[in-house]
Deep mutational scan, measured.
Amino acid sequence: MDETGKELVLALYDYQEKSPREVTMKKGDILTLLNSTNKDWWKVEVKITVNGKTYERQGAVPAAYVKKL
């Protein structure tokens, strides 16, 4: 869990989004888990830093590609 009490997951593999509802992640990324009720796809929040600014993006990733921490 992070400092706000939200559950975290670890990306076990790289994943490139294939639709606007998904998010890209790299192996080793730590993501915030938002919903894991679907056994195949979990909704997560990814933090992306671009030019020193951090953005948050929500989307789905394959459940088999992440592990709860």
Rank of each mutant, 00 (worst) to 15 (best):
L34Q: 01
K67F: 08
R57D: 02
W42C: 05
E22N: 04
L31H: 02
P62N: 04
T4K: 13
I48F: 11
K67Q: 12
L12E: 02
R21I: 10
L8D: 02
L33R: 01
D40V: 13
Y55Q: 08
G52L: 04
L33D: 00
S36W: 08
K53Y: 12
P62A: 03
K18Q: 13
D40W: 15
A64H: 12
P62L: 06
Y65P: 01
G5P: 14
K67S: 09
Q58N: 07
E7M: 12
V66Y: 04
K68S: 06
N38M: 07
T32C: 11
N51P: 03
D14C: 07
A60T: 14
T24I: 05
E17N: 06
L33C: 05
L34I: 14
N35L: 07
A11W: 04
L33Q: 00
E56N: 15
T4E: 13
G52H: 05
K6R: 14
T49Q: 10
Q16P: 05
R21L: 14
L10Y: 10
T54M: 09
V44I: 06
L12N: 01
N51L: 08
K6I: 11
P20V: 09
T37I: 10
I48V: 13
Y65T: 06
W41L: 03
K53V: 14
T54L: 09
A60P: 02
A63Q: 03
D2V: 14
L12A: 03
Q58L: 06
G28D: 03
G52F: 05
T54Q: 10
K27C: 07
E56C: 15
E17V: 05
E22T: 07
E7K: 08
I48R: 07
D2G: 14
N35E: 15
K18N: 09
D40C: 14
K39F: 08
T4Q: 12
G28M: 03
T49S: 10
E7L: 10
A60I: 15
V46K: 13
L69Y: 08
T4L: 12
L34G: 01
N38S: 09
V46R: 09
V9A: 09
M1A: 13
V23R: 03
V66I: 07
V44A: 01
N35Y: 05
L34E: 01
R57C: 08
D40H: 14
K27R: 11
V46T: 11
L12H: 02
E7Q: 14
S36Q: 10
M1K: 13
L31Y: 09
Y15V: 01
E45F: 06
E7N: 10
A64S: 13
I30R: 04
I48G: 05
N35G: 07
W41Y: 07
R57G: 03
L10G: 01
T37S: 14
M25K: 00
R21F: 14
K43L: 15
V61E: 00
A60Y: 15
Y13M: 11
L8W: 14
V9E: 00
L8K: 11
L10M: 14
T32I: 14
E3I: 14
L69M: 09
L12Q: 02
Y55G: 04
G5S: 12
K27Y: 04
S19M: 05
A63W: 04
A64C: 15
R57P: 00
R57F: 08
I30W: 04
L34P: 00
